[in-house]
Design a protein around this nucleic acid. Structure first.
Lengths: 186, 186
DNA sequence: GTCTATATTAAGATAGAC
DNA sequence: GTCTATCTTAATATAGAC
């Protein structure tokens, strides 16, 4: 047995799930080993930087997913309201209908490598910018569009907290349903 | 030296600050020891149950603070709008103007004792109920009042995430400023 | 590319002196 | 009531066999 027991994609998905569930400090190499079926030494072979390396790779993967699936959808030439509806569907899938936490929330808790937090900050700024842009396209003034973008993401993040604590996906679903009215004018 | 080097209140405040900053998994007894000036064995003397015990005590303290400072204010006979303004001021202080994270958010991440999560869930339900009650008092229908309460807390929690990630207290301040309009009718 | 084995440090926790 | 000292387990990390 000399070749990969688990694909890079599977390893990524497993690590993402662990980090967004337990946080940086809550994920040990032992836990990663148990979840992936790879021994710790094998994880170091794939990620020489160890846990920091894996966490940064996960964060980078999420940033890439947002670029391809959220920001790209917002740059299409569909009507703004259609674009936002598409984004809401993709966010619903990404957050497991409200059962999965936001990796930006979880990994922004101090403890992990500093680069991680810097990357998440940049990603969040990009997300706000992308939402503000679609709101402006739909006819809002620049300052109102920016406020609505902040409000939309604030409500998504907040509703995910409520969903986690209350063990009820309702708040998240309601936040997503409001997205079109929040980010588009009529 | 046979007597208390640090008061229970000081120990509580220090532990609260550590847990809301680093999360359950991110707080070690070493860290608590360094921050309080007490050796680990002394922490065990005060909290025989160790870290779990301290975390549960912190959560209980916060629940008590909310009862005395938030829920109590909402039960006074001031006009609803005045009550909400008072609550906003107290929440601003509690969250350090947006610089401090929500203990409910942080301690709801899996890893700590189960009782912790159950207590936080009950506390959050009580918070929603208290906000819904003041909204209803101000003239809203029961379902709308409940929706507004959920929205208000969702935005507070979400804005605290944004504030932490963006290193900018603006979102939190804006969320608080909106509270009166959100929870009262005129 | 993955494994077993091991080194090293830090974690949670307790015993017993003062 | 706090301390030093110690135990046990689990953490990150590496060496070297296959």
């Amino acid at each position: 047995m000399a070749h990969r027991m688990i694909s890079d994609e599977q390893l990524y998905e497993t690590a993402l799930d662990l980090f967004r569930t337990y946080g940086y400090e809550g994920v040990s190499l032992q836990r990663l080993s148990a979840a992936t079926g790879l021994e710790k030494a094998s994880l170091y072979y794939r990620y020489p930087g160890g846990k920091d390396d894996i966490a940064k790779s996960v964060a980078q993967g999420v940033v890439h997913w947002f670029q391809s699936n959220i920001f790209a959808a917002l740059l299409s030439d569909l009507p703004p309201r259609r674009k936002v509806a598409t984004v809401a569907d993709r966010l619903r899938a990404f957050y497991g209908g409200g059962r999965k936490s936001c990796i930006t929330e979880i990994l922004s808790i101090p403890g992990g490598p500093e680069e991680l937090r810097a990357g998440l900050k940049a990603a969040l700024q990009a997300w706000i910018k992308a939402f503000a842009e679609v709101a402006r396209q739909s006819g809002m003034s620049t300052p109102i569009a920016k406020a609505r973008a902040e409000e939309a993401i604030s409500r998504i993040e907040g509703s995910l907290i409520l969903a986690r604590v209350l063990e009820d996906t309702g708040p998240f679903e309601r936040a997503l349903r409001l997205l079109p009215d929040l980010l588009t004018k009529e």
